[in-house]
Structures are given as C-alpha cells and as structure tokens.
Design a protein around this nucleic acid. Structure first.
Lengths: 223, 223
DNA sequence: AGGAAACCTTAATATAAACTTACAGCTTGA
DNA sequence: TCAAGCTGTAAGTTTATATTAAGGTTTCCT
C-alpha cells in the first residue's frame, strides 16, 4: 500500500515516513508544494496524510483539488483541535483527523482502519461490471454481450471502466485523459478520440450500437 | 440511513438519538444490553455507535461479536482517551473513536464521513436542481418534466443552471453573457437571445410554458 | 397613439469538437 | 528476427452546435 505524505515540517515528515516504511508501507513525500497534484497523479497513492497548515495553499485547498478527481482516503493532521477544525476536515472530504502531537501508534491504527474500510470490500467485490447487456470482466479485460465476446486492449479497458463506473454521468474528455495519461500532458487530444473509436468498433462487432454517447463539448456518457 | 446506538448513559443516549433524528437519521437505541445481537440482526443498521464502558460485557466484546457477522461501520465512544484505547478500538475492528465529552457537530461530521466512505454509491446518486416540476440533472445535462425528458447542449445547460441557481432573482443578460463567454466580449448580444429561445423551445416541448420570464431591460427570471 | 429600444424568430452560415482512416514506431513473444 | 498487435500521430472529413443576419414582435415611455 502506497501512502502520500503532505507535511512541511521536516521532522514530522521524516518520522512519519520512517515509521510507515517500518510497517511495510510504501511512502511518497511531498517536497515541492507546487507539485502536489502532479505527484498525486503520478503515484496514485492508496491513502493521503495531509497537514492543514502548509506554505501558500492549505491542506483543505489541496484536499478539495484531489477530491475533484479522486476518492482516495485522506487523514488530516493539525496542531489545532477545535471542534470546528475537525468538522471542517470531514466536510471537505477528509476521513479522519489527528491532532499534533500524536502517537505513531494511533496514526498507524487509524491508517489501518481506514485502509481496511476502503479496500477490504475489494476482495469480495464482484469481478465484473454490467450495464445494458454489456459485461466487462475486470480480471482479463474482456467484454461480453450475449454469447459473443471480445478482448480489450489496456487503453480501451481503462476507458470503458471509467465510463461504466460513472454510468449516467457525463465524463469529460480531460478527466479521461488525465486518468489515462497522468501528467504526460503532451499526448494529442485526438489520441483519445481514436481510442474511443476503437472501443466503439469492438462494441458494434458484439452487436451493441450507441453504447457510448458523445456529449459534444462536455464529454462521453453511458446511460 | 439507520444508526444503532449502544450507550448505557441515558442522558447521552437520548441526546445523541435526538440530534441524529434531527439530521434525518433513523435511530435504534439499545435498552436491554442482553439483546444487542438480536436488535442488530433485526434492524441491520448502516452504522453503529458503541460505548466502551457498558454493564456486563464491554463495547470491545460486542464489536468483535458483530464483526463475526458484519462489516458495519462502527464508531466507539469513551471517556478515556489514552493512545492505547484508541489503538485498541481500531484493532478490534472499529472505524473511529470519539472521546467524551464531545461536540455533537463532531460526531455528526464523523458519521457523515464514515457513511460517505462506506456507502460511496451515495455520492453517485444524481445531483439535481428542481423548480416547479422541472428537474435539471447536473450530471448528464438532462431536463425532466413528469415522464418526459430532453437533453440540453452545453450552452443551454449553463444558462438554465445559472437561472435556477438564482431562482426568484432577476439575472441580467450581461451577467449570463459574462458567465458564458468570460472575457470574449466580442460575441453578439443576439447569441444569448437565440440560446434562450432554444432552451425555451425544449421546455415547451416538455409541456412547460413560461418557465423563463423576460424582464425587459433587466434580464431573465425563474419564479 | 407613435416610435424606439429591447427582445424574439427563423434560417443560413461558420466553427470547433469529434470522427475516420491510414500509417509508423514500439513491444512482445514465437 | 520477424510477425502480430498495441499505441499514438497526422491529415482530411463530418457534424453538432454556436453564431450571424435580417426581419418581426412586444413593451414601454412621452
């Protein structure tokens, strides 16, 4: 499990990082606070530890930026502990709040509890997604329709998964592109179009037309 | 959402129950502490609030009993607050820990955060705005009226959203135009008129006339 | 009532977003 | 090392939708 640490106090950052590694977690520490989003997109961590007081923008700001694109579990750290701070943290999309100074044992226990809550269902979670007769096998990237099946490439699979996960909701092209190519922001806009076309072609070959709808100027939707 | 409260102090139990109900939660309060498992099985709550100090068996015991059969989210309450208590709570399968005495705001915030995390599908329940029978779906840009529906383009959607957000208030044409076209101040005044017309046409097709009223010289209003 | 803003209607036109098709660089594995 | 399939690029095309244009209403003030 990979944990991203956003904390400007070097002592705390190192201590937390070291302890987490001792516990077998992989850590990603933010050093340049202008690069938070890029680092997040690059590493796609399983959990984020976020200090509230940071240089320039604060932890709440970065939380809401991350929440625009991800539901990653997040624990706030802060030396203040009025009820308002706690309520604020939760309302911004945080999952827990720990007051500094804290015992590492407590942090570890809370991280474990939150990871268990977030990812445990994954084991029992069904290995397929279904919508309107199309079954997407998450294990091997196959799509089924009736008795016909087809294999998707990595990119096609990724696109279909994100669209099916958001069925009934318009997913913008930039959101898909960010999710596919992280911060390699030099990939052509058209690359997505081509991949969508390839995916659609396979769906049509299975006898499924109009599965992905284009919302011009807005994105794509499965409904 | 149904919340089970396991707390022997009558004052706290009632206060928590009352507040939760004020927030729209259904509550199940334990009165007979030999019946915890039966009540749990009967009601199948979405979340459990568990005091640690209870008559006969303590909260940890009941937590582990419940964990044998369910992954229901659980928040512990206790007046003690050594790191050990917190760590213990988490390790027993709890999701959070609140020290007594606590602010109800904090409890509510933690409950909401935990429910959000556990039943994340709640977030996918569609976000809408409603006024006078017209429902605007913010996630797929559709408008509904009774059983009829219509799809909006990006511009139409933007206009309707800004008008519904300001329902009962006159929104000036310049305000709408600035919001739509930012600083491209070279777009024709009439462009807005045409888009309003198209939007109205779709509303009429749904059987809704006079939804957007023109206030000559002032702007448009939905009332 | 008369006139002029302000706004509406309809239809033609322009445009940017998305699509199609073809191709070439890679990777992978036989 | 060569074939097969994946992936991104390029160039040209289509199309949904915004914009323009031109003439028609409504509203409101004197």
């Amino acid at each position: 499990m990979k944990i991203m640490i956003v904390e400007d106090d070097l002592t705390i950052r190192d201590m937390v990082g070291e302890t987490l590694e001792k516990w077998g977690f992989e850590t990603v520490k933010i050093e340049d606070f202008d690069q938070i989003m890029q680092v997040f997109l690059n590493h796609d961590p399983h959990l984020v530890i976020m200090d509230i007081n940071l240089p320039s923008f604060d932890g709440f700001y970065w939380c809401s930026k991350i929440r625009e694109i991800s539901k990653v579990p997040m624990i706030f750290l802060s030396s203040r502990d009025t009820p308002m701070d706690i309520v604020m943290s939760m309302n911004m999309g945080g999952d827990d709040y720990i007051q500094k100074p804290f015992h590492m044992d407590v942090l570890i226990a809370k991280i474990n509890a939150l990871l268990r809550r977030t990812y445990s269902y994954m084991e029992t979670q069904s290995q397929t997604m279904e919508h309107d007769g199309i079954i997407l096998n998450l294990e091997n990237g196959e799509i089924l329709h009736g008795d016909r099946k087809s294999e998707l490439t990595k990119t096609e699979f990724h696109i279909l998964k994100i669209l099916m996960k958001n069925k009934g909701i318009i997913v913008s092209r930039t959101k898909i592109m960010r999710s596919l190519w992280k911060n390699e922001n030099f990939v052509d806009e058209n690359t997505l179009t081509v991949n969508i076309a390839r995916l659609r072609k396979k769906l049509v070959e299975l006898g499924k037309e109009h599965f992905i709808t284009t919302k011009k100027g807005q994105g794509y939707i499965i409904q």
